[in-house]
Each structure stands twice: as structure tokens, then as C-alpha cells.
Design a protein around this nucleic acid. Structure first.
Lengths: 219, 219
DNA sequence: AAGAAAGCTGAAGATTTGCTGAAAATTTAG
DNA sequence: CTAAATTTTCAGCAAATCTTCAGCTTTCTT
């Protein structure tokens, strides 16, 4: 599922966007200020972030900069001002796109899809395929016999190929935000996943020491 | 050199853009109708194409579609109309961005740069590139095998090229403000970084005695 | 030219990280 | 309610990484 992070201090907007985007089958997470927005981003690793510029505390430019720097997701800035100089400032702050409020939801959708095209170029022939309906993941066409947790974990990796995911992010995504246990449980499950994938050399599920794990699907 | 293809039937515009973009060190090719534009694209394989929508013969949407499908370059559409529906139509025709005439040259520049960031053209140009997603830094395209601290250190330098960074500043940025140890640890890590970069002559990571270190990336 | 300061270096020791097998706890199924 | 399956915890290990330190070289000052 494609993840979208919305950061705006106006709740009317975040609610509106959450509803609208969820109706479009996106996985939406909302934050009402910059700081928690960046925090959320670290946890969920979104594909696209929609960030309002004018916010109390950390402003949109700064949030954008942090997101591009640490997460590397696509960023669309939102602004009440439509001045040319603001647009330039936004784009130079590493944003990938810039929209002026009020905007049409349709246009936002179109821009999100334009962004996603840039991210998901490599999705040609997948070695690992997810069958949501049957809650199955197939490897080279063969269904893997996974437990519920194993499924969710591998699912998360497949959603973020070629991306280093921290154990904390994994814990949040798979075990939930309110999980108490230690990250060791992730390590244990990585072992079983690698076993079931026959990945004894750790080539598919790579350990990136100090950062986390990465799914590296060979083409 | 980064290649930009401009397709517009109004010669006043193509000339204006050609001059302006060449002044910005881009390699600019111009076409005055869609058909020859696509032909040119096949020849030069541009990084970014700027395409006017309203043109006699093949219109901008169609050109855009062909470019995305066959060339895969980034496309910025230009239009006299600023209607929301037109913008959506443009973005859904696989365009990566959409601008309304009349536009400021500055904004176009900013948008071009935003596009280029996605294509990783910079990576071919830049000696050192950061891949946030994969927590990798590449030197001449080759990934460096860095530990977490080495990565953070080099990351810090790349973000501040041509800038002398004091050991104290480095310690703060990489090790955190609450770090107890001495600055010698920076010196030790500079050594390993220089080793991994093959920088035996200390030309990339220069010592500025009494002040700190400077990343000097030769273009 | 000598001394002082700043920076470099190799190696040792300390710490952290990730992996693992197995046991304990929990959930699920029969 | 039991047995099986699954999930979680734990402790030990090895390897990678980080830190420290003492001696060394280079540069600057007088």
C-alpha cells in the first residue's frame, strides 16, 4: 500500500485530505505540526509527504528539508501564497512540487500520481508478489507458508524495496505504535523469513549494520 | 552536461528559453513542432523536456505521452490556460510538472532543478552522491562501504561542500551535542574516510590547520 | 634551530550490534 | 481443556565498530 504523510496544522484540511486520500486506497498518516510530522516519517517511511508551509513551530520549508535529507520521500508543499518567489523558495528547499491553496483535490491527486511515477519506476517483473486477497506472498510464483507476523513483515519490505528500514520503523509498522518489546523480536523474525526464502547468504534481506535491513530484489 | 529539449511553436519563446537555459550551463536543443521534437528526443535523449501544449499538428499532450513512453525523460508542460482541469489533464498525460504561461524564468529553473533531482542526473555529474533511502554514499557511482559514523560524517561534509568545518562543529553534528570524548575521534575518522575515498593526498578532504576540515569536490 | 601546538597514525581495549538456539509465554485450533 | 502453533524473551557469542592513547610528523612561532 502506498503511504502518504500529511502535515498541516489546520485540522479541517488534514481531515479532509485523510478522508479523500483513503478513499483513493492510500495509506494515510496525519500530523498536525512539523516536529511530529518528521517523527512520523521516520516511523512509517512514506512514499509522498504533503506539507503545509505556514505552520507554528517548525515551518514547511524546514520540514521539507528534513524529509528530503533523512527520509528521501517525495514532498509536495502546500501554501496559501501563490507568489512566484514563494514557489521558487519552496522548490529550492528541495521540494518536488508546489501547490497553492485553495487547491482542487483532483489536482492534488494528479500531482501525487505524478510524484509516484518517479519513485516506482522499478516494478517490472516482481520476484515477490503479494496476494492481498489470499493473504499470500509468492516467491517465484510459489506461495510461501508464512505466519501472520511473518506475512506482515515481508509485506512491509515488499512495499519498500531498495530501502533501508530501521528496526524501529519495522516495529512500528508491523507490531504497532504501542508495542513495548525490544527490537530483538525483529531480528528473530528476520531469521525465520530468511530461512523460508532460502536466503542463507542474506542477499535478498540484507543487513545494513547500524541502520536496519533492506530488501534487495535481484532482477 | 544536462540536456534540455524545448518544444514550442512560438519562436520567441524557444529563443528566449534557449538563451536563458544555456546561460545556466544546460545543453539546450529546440524544436518548433511536436513531430520534430519527438525525433530530436530520440537523437539526443534529453534529461528534461519542456513542452508547450497548444501546438499545430501533434499537441503537447501527445508529445508528452510519447516522450514518457519511449524516452522516459522528465516532462514539464507549458500552457496558456491555467484551468484546473487542464492541469489535471496534463499531469494525467504522464507529465511530471505543469506550468502556466506567462511564467517567470526563475520558477521554470526551480522546477527544472526539482525534476532533475528525481532523475539522478546529478549523480552522474556529482562525484559524491547521497542515497538517503539506501543509506549509501556513492563515489563516481560506486557505493562506498561505510559504517554508520563514517556515513554520518561524510554526509555532513557533502551537505557543506567547500566549507571549512571545525572539529567541534563536526563533533556536534555527528556525535551529538552531549558527547564527552575528545576531538581526536574526528581525526581518526577522517583518516578512515580518506582511506575509503582513496584520498591519500588529502585533496578531497582537506585539512585547514587551526580551523578544521573542508570537502573540496573537484568538478 | 628549538620548542610548542596541531594534526596524524597504528594498535589496543571497550562497547555495540546482530545472530542464534532454546526456553517461556501466549494464542489458536481441535 | 489439551496440544500444537506461534510469538516473545533471554542469554551467550562473535564480529563489527567505536574510542582512547601514546608516540610520531608537520607546521608555526620565536
Amino acid at each position: 500500500m502506498i503511504k502518504i504523510l500529511v502535515i498541516d496544522d489546520e485540522e479541517s484540511i488534514t481531515q479532509f485530505l485523510q478522508m479523500g486520500l483513503e478513499a483513493e486506497q492510500f495509506d494515510v498518516v496525519v500530523a498536525n505540526d512539523g516536529m511530529t510530522g518528521v517523527q512520523q516519517a521516520k516511523n512509517i517511511v512514506p512514499d509522498v509527504a504533503i506539507v503545509d508551509i505556514m505552520m507554528p513551530g517548525m515551518d514547511g520549508y524546514e520540514v521539507c528539508h528534513l524529509l528530503k535529507k533523512h527520509i528521501g520521500c517525495q514532498v509536495i508543499l502546500l501554501s496559501a501564497k501563490g507568489e512566484v518567489e514563494d514557489r521558487i523558495k519552496g522548490l529550492n528547499a528541495l521540494a518536488d512540487d508546489y501547490m497553492t491553496k485553495p487547491f482542487s483535490f483532483e489536482e492534488l491527486l494528479a500531482r501525487i500520481h505524478a510524484r509516484l511515477r518517479n519513485v516506482r519506476v522499478q516494478q517490472e517483473e516482481a520476484l515477490l508478489t503479494i496476494d492481498e486477497k489470499q493473504k499470500q506472498i509468492r516467491y517465484r510464483g510459489e506461495p510461501l507458508l508464512l505466519t501472520r507476523t511473518e506475512y506482515k513483515l515481508l509485506h512491509y519490505f515488499i512495499e519498500h524495496p531498495q530501502t533501508v528500514l530501521s528496526k524501529e520503523a519495522i516495529l512500528n509498522a508491523v507490531w504497532g505504535y504501542d508495542y513495548f518489546g525490544s527490537v530483538n523480536v525483529v531480528e528473530v523474525y528476520m531469521k525465520t523469513l530468511r530461512q523460508k526464502l532460502g536466503d542463507t547468504e542474506h542477499t535478498m534481506l540484507q543487513t545494513v549494520r547500524g541502520f536496519g535491513y533492506k530488501l534487495d530484489v535481484p532482477v
